[in-house]
């Protein structure tokens, strides 16, 4: 006698939680809880099963129109297929980098990609200055161009160990290991409690962990 198993209709881009769990630090139940969060974020403006840039901005800033260089970079890195939206699998795989159990090396690599604005394989001096200026624009901190130059110059001279005017992945790794606070924002302790935050996943769960 077969057992009756009903599969609910899933949104486009939905991926099997057991596959996502196998590829990430999340349990199957945690992936299902992340799906509850994903459904909320991906339906906040256009209910089509994808997180659009405006929905991402709305979740981060409570403002769908607030452009921010760093949010743009995070969105682009989450959008692994580069099709302009974040799908569920991309969301889970990318958030996996921010899990407390993810190796530091993976976090360091992700941060490097974030800061390598032009994706040249190096963080260049101009990129670093652009990022400092962008940060100042979103904060209340006002610094003169001279002070910005000093900060950038000092940081660059510390990180660019080979002194060739650009920071490569190896130099970045060494620099972060000396200054671990630089990747503090690459860990979200919240991800360990995701099933507590979204207990409604139980209603839609297809497995028992």
């Amino acid at each position: 006698m077969g057992c009756y198993h009903s599969k609910k209709a899933k949104s486009p881009g939905y991926e099997d939680p057991s596959i996502l769990s196998a590829e990430t630090p999340f349990t199957v139940n945690e992936v299902e809880a992340l799906h509850e969060l994903f459904k909320k974020l991906s339906s906040s403006i256009i209910d089509d099963g994808f997180i659009h840039k405006e929905e991402f901005q709305l979740a981060l800033f409570r403002n769908r129109n607030k452009r921010n260089l760093f949010a743009d970079r995070v969105f682009d890195l989450f959008d692994l297929k580069r099709n302009g939206v974040i799908e569920f699998g991309e969301f889970v795989r990318s958030l996996g980098v921010f899990h407390p159990n993810t190796p530091t090396e993976d976090k360091i690599t992700f941060a490097f990609k974030l800061y390598d604005l032009r994706q040249t394989g190096y963080i260049e001096r101009e990129e670093l200055k652009d990022m400092v200026v962008a940060l100042l624009q979103e904060s209340d901190l006002v610094l003169s161009d001279e002070v910005i130059e000093i900060i950038v110059h000092k940081t660059f001279s510390e990180a660019d160990a080979k002194g060739d005017g650009r920071i490569d992945q190896e130099e970045w790794k060494e620099f972060v290991l000396k200054n671990p606070s630089l990747i503090k924002n690459m860990t979200l302790p919240y991800l360990k409690d995701i099933t507590v935050a979204f207990p409604s996943f139980v209603l839609n769960s297809e497995v028992e962990d």
């Binding site: 969060l37 974020l41 979740a59 981060l60 800033f61 921010n68 260089l69 760093f70 949010a71 743009d72 970079r73 995070v74 958030l95 921010f98 974030l114 800061y115 670093l128 990022m131 400092v132 962008a134 940060l135 979103e138 904060s139 901190l141 610094l143 002070v147 000093i150 900060i151 950038v152 000092k154 940081t155 660059f156 510390e158 990180a159 620099f175 200054n179 606070s181 630089l182 990747i183 503090k184 924002n185 979200l188 919240y190 935050a197």
Partner: peptide, 26 residues
């Protein structure tokens, strides 16, 4: 002059755009 001693990457890491914990706020 405090800001001059700042690490540029440390400054950048405080961006709201890099603070993904906001995604989980109800």
């Amino acid at each position: 002059m405090a800001p001059v001693t700042m690490n540029a990457f440390e400054l950048i890491s405080t961006s709201q755009g890099l603070n993904l914990s906001s995604l989980f706020e109800k």
